[in-house]
Design a protein around this nucleic acid. Structure first.
Lengths: 153, 153
DNA sequence: CTATCTGCAAAGATTTTGCAGCGTA
DNA sequence: TACGCTGCAAAATCTTTGCAGATAG
């Protein structure tokens, strides 16, 4: 399953005429195996163990390329910088961000399509994609619980 | 109406023990009178005419303060940096971002509340706020029209 | 009057770019 | 083999901080 995503990402690179290099594979497989939503710095650090020679410039260039190809997706969960996740097809989800511990929960249910059709009728805009984040408090951080601020972003 | 927002923003500052200074008023009234969604640089430039002596550091510090107080709100419309708008109470809206010309249309209809209650039941999260952006093509940029890339962000 | 706020300039981060050598196709 | 890709280091941006003088309350 992880294999399948990696394989198709590799094919997508090839198809568009890009080379399938070590850093590219390393970044894709790191993000594919990652539960959280790392930022550029965290991606670099996460790769160091498997790929000690990699440089920051390569991370920037590679992530930008993978975003363009739709292999990755950017999200702004903490309202001040960008984080990244793999863009598995058929995996339409949104984020629940806890303001207590920073934990992010993904949720899949989304009835925006109905709303979208309505908005398109009124505005004549063609809606192709959307993103939705909800902010609040997770069960641990609700008043009456202790702070468990060690969760994965 | 613009007056009312400015007045209540000023009161909010005072109430929390902050001073009502020139730069603060200038930034609030600039953003209150602005249709678009300027970023830090654009706020600075927009203020220069009315307040030529203002410095970038003050813009950063002031915008951060006004965000904390809830007088402003940050949005990431172009997926790579933050833009700001005034946070008028009772003005719950989202953004339609055109990938052709960059224009942003605000829309108000939003039935997320129903979805939120459902998600809260399942996750035990308490949802306090949410943000939603939809991306696509505006009527001008749909195939068959010319590019009018001069719209306000 | 006093504590806060501002502008400036310097420091610190973050992101981009140029280039010589490496590695994939 | 050839061209694209990488790592490094430098450059360009963007953001934060320290401080002395200005200013709101």
């Amino acid at each position: 399953m992880e294999d399948k995503f990696l394989k198709s990402a590799g094919e997508e690179l090839r198809r568009k005429g890009y080379k399938l290099t070590g850093p590219r594979l390393a970044i894709i497989s790191y993000l594919a195996g990652e539960k959280g939503h790392p930022d550029m710095q965290e991606i670099l650090e996460g790769l160091r163990s498997e790929y000690p020679a990699i440089g920051m410039a390569t991370v920037y260039r590679t992530v930008d390329l993978l975003l363009e190809l739709g292999i990755l997706r950017a999200v702004t969960l903490k309202n001040n910088h960008l984080r990244y996740e793999v863009n598995r097809s058929g995996d339409h989800h949104h984020h629940l961000v806890c303001r207590g511990c920073g934990q992010i929960i993904e949720f899949g249910s989304c009835n925006f399509q109905l709303m979208a059709r309505e908005i398109e009728k009124v505005t004549r805009f063609r809606i192709e994609e959307h993103s939705l984040e909800a902010y609040g408090l997770c069960p641990h951080c609700l008043p009456g619980s202790e702070d468990h601020s060690t969760e994965k972003i």
